[in-house]
Design a protein around this nucleic acid. Sequence first.
DNA 1: GCAAAAGTGTTACGAGTACACCCATGT
DNA 2: ACATGGGTGTACTCGTAACACTTTTGC
Lengths: 244, 244
Amino acid sequence: MPQSHPEPTRFPVTVDIVALTVRDDALNVLLITRLIEPFRGKLALPGGFVLAGEGLGEAAIRELAEEAGVEQVPGHLEQLQSYGPKGRDPRGDVLTVAHLMLAPNFPVLSAGSDAEHAAWYPVSHVLEGETELAFDHGRILADAVERARSKLEYSPLGAAFCGEEFTIAQLRAVYEAVWGTRLDPRNFHRKATGNPGFLEDTGRMTAGDAGRPAALFRLAPAARSAAGEPVRAVLNPPLMRPRP
Amino acid sequence: MPQSHPEPTRFPVTVDIVALTVRDDALNVLLITRLIEPFRGKLALPGGFVLAGEGLGEAAIRELAEEAGVEQVPGHLEQLQSYGPKGRDPRGDVLTVAHLMLAPNFPVLSAGSDAEHAAWYPVSHVLEGETELAFDHGRILADAVERARSKLEYSPLGAAFCGEEFTIAQLRAVYEAVWGTRLDPRNFHRKATGNPGFLEDTGRMTAGDAGRPAALFRLAPAARSAAGEPVRAVLNPPLMRPRP
DNA sequence: GCAAAAGTGTTACGAGTACACCCATGT
DNA sequence: ACATGGGTGTACTCGTAACACTTTTGC
């Protein structure tokens, strides 16, 4: 920590949010279209400057509200990584602290004060280079997706993409979308329901869909915080994604 | 990213380094004794302000040299997490980006410009509350240790605690020290040597120690970068620590 | 009845654990 | 010879993959 006496350099600090959801069986990311230079007209992650007296998490939540009209964080929010002040913004040294948000599909209101257009985009299109993001946001998105993929293996966070109650098939669809693989429905069912402290049967069933009705589950008390959000509990045994 | 027009708030940014090594079969952390207020006389993580035009990693390496006389990073360095500007420094809002360093036991020269005394301390003593650290460094250390423990499971980073060449028993001692458990030597030997892309037999052997000579290994090419540092390759299957 | 999706049983295999056992050195 | 630590073989157990099979709905 501080030990030299000259006044330390001060940096503008931003938070950027990688908000992920599953739509139409594909992993999607929330992006805004920039209205000002630099990178005007390009797609970018939502985010903005941290204000005086604010914590990082608070800033992320505020920016999400300002830029995408998200009034209440509907899922899980965690810090991802920081990207160093040097050479990532043409206007000067800016430090950014990237955050990862996993949420059920929610409407994007796009009420930003500068009226940026916020919308969902399939992650695969962006990562495969068909869309170029502003700043180093392409790299941040790649890091976020890798983190999300690995978190599904050993944490109950997959449920953050579902609503309050969900079927095993819905949960499996999340895993398949995030990992980009197909999973055996029978084996997945056993692994998910058999994992102690992961899921809790609500006793209720779906109705009206094709096929046999499915049991509705929610996160077990051990796997969620007071707010209902999935918590840092460990899946034991983990649900590993297929490796090549 | 930036979208509002008023001049953004600027924050002092520091890097703090959690340098871990294994000494006397125990996990140790590099700490300095603070010579100035606040927390004068308390133990703290080495670190300091990021300068203009510097990246985060560069700043970490420079501070390690300044505060502990470490002229060349002898192991692995990665970013850990950032700790928010609000309420962690009595003098005002300071953002810190914590880094994790895993290294073989190296001499601490303690040549800091302010002559802080830098030395190794057993992690267990610090975490069990027998020593209070300055700022929020106790929490940062706890997060770093948890990250190190989990990284040993699925990455070749355990070798970062060893020198260029090492025996399986030395590597096992690292795992035992970091995890705080005993491991079966026979099973560990097989899991480590049998893991494709992890270790490479040098053909050389130890001599002079008690008992049968041991084969010397190094990191396999797939598991290390050009500089010889362990790289983000995945151990497959992972070496899991025993769970309760 | 038939299609579709939920959920169970069964078998084969691969990895982990525990531990008996052999090997190669120093003293 | 014996102690010390390195290294291999083997039996048991458990989680996983693959897939046949039963259950319960909509049409």
